[in-house]
């Protein structure tokens, strides 16, 4: 056997408000791989991302999720984050009164603390953050503003990428990162994501549209419909889906 997969989902069932959304989902992601999950609306894409990150109200009723070989379903969202799980939100949340810098510093130090490392002082962190913003070409004023407040759609998604760059996760889940972006913003955000691709970082890219995958090119593509993976393949599967749509999977369900 080779290396331990970063993520192993086995026959996962999950309900929201008593309604079963995930109905036996199985998926394995190895270190460094980029997987795309495509599917029609209501197929369970966002539910999967919330189950993996531990959001309240998403109840697992069967199956398991192993992260680096360890069951993480009992862990709090912050504990999963500390272990290196990251979710880039479809709709990043506005937090009035908390500056991006404070937010990022709190997050970074909380993660360091949970990992048993020394937290950074303000000076150290600013230096570290400046390095990250420079890499991603993010303007200084964006880190001084309240988290996502008054940000354009593109800025919000770039802010997600910045957070990912700061927290350096091992598994990044990108939930409909393309939603609400024009082509220029999509390119910028994709460039940011691509800059963070590395053999130590796996990604799960969730999207409705194939277009995102022109810019973030996946190693594998899966079709999620009606709560389970209906088909898996290489990146050419995305193109096929773009051509023929999801109809056959919805009917099959």
């Amino acid at each position: 056997m080779g290396q331990t997969p970063i993520l192993e989902i086995n026959d996962l069932h999950a309900t929201v408000d008593g309604k079963e959304i995930l109905k036996g989902l199985t998926l394995t992601i190895n270190p460094g791989e980029v997987h795309a999950i495509m599917g029609p609306n209501g197929s369970g894409k966002s539910t999967l991302s919330y189950v993996l990150t531990g959001r309240e109200g998403y109840e697992v009723t069967g199956g398991d999720v192993l992260y680096e070989g360890e069951n993480i379903l009992e862990l709090q969202p912050e504990e999963r984050a500390a272990k290196g799980v990251f979710l880039a939100f479809q709709y990043p949340v506005e937090i009035p009164g908390v500056t991006n810098t404070t937010f990022l510093k709190e997050a970074m130090n909380a993660v360091l603390k949970q990992r048993g490392d020394e937290p950074m002082d303000a000076m150290e962190f600013m230096k570290f953050l400046r390095g990250k913003t420079k890499e991603l070409g993010i303007a200084d004023d964006m880190i001084k503003r309240s988290v996502n407040v008054g940000f354009s759609g593109g800025e919000k998604k770039r802010n997600e990428v910045l957070q990912m760059a700061v927290l350096e996760p091992k598994l990044a889940i990108l939930d409909e990162t393309d939603s609400g972006l024009d082509i220029d913003a999509l390119k910028t955000v994709s460039n940011g994501v691509n800059a963070l691709r590395s053999p130590e970082r796996s990604m799960l890219v969730i999207t409705h549209y194939q277009r995102l995958l022109d810019y973030i090119v996946p190693d594998f593509v899966h079709v999620l419909a009606n709560g389970s993976i209906k088909r898996s393949g290489g990146k050419e599967l995305a193109i096929e889906l773009e051509k023929f749509g999801y109809a056959e999977f919805i009917e099959a369900a």
């Binding site: 990150t53 531990g54 959001r55 309240e56 709090q76 969202p77 912050e78 999963r80 984050a81 500390a82 990251f86 979710l87 939100f89 990043p92 949340v93 506005e94 937090i95 009035p96 009164g97 908390v98 404070t102 937010f103 709190e106 997050a107 970074m108 909380a110 993660v111 949970q114 309240s146 957070q163 927290l167």
Partner: peptide, 28 residues
């Protein structure tokens, strides 16, 4: 609750996240 989850998903423990949100609210 959404903001709370957002912060926790970034590693900020629940208690600290609540404090930050309340503090920000009063900050106005």
């Amino acid at each position: 609750e959404t903001a709370l989850f957002y912060m926790r998903s970034r590693g900020i423990p629940e208690v600290a996240a609540r404090e930050l949100l309340i503090e920000a609210f009063l900050g106005e």
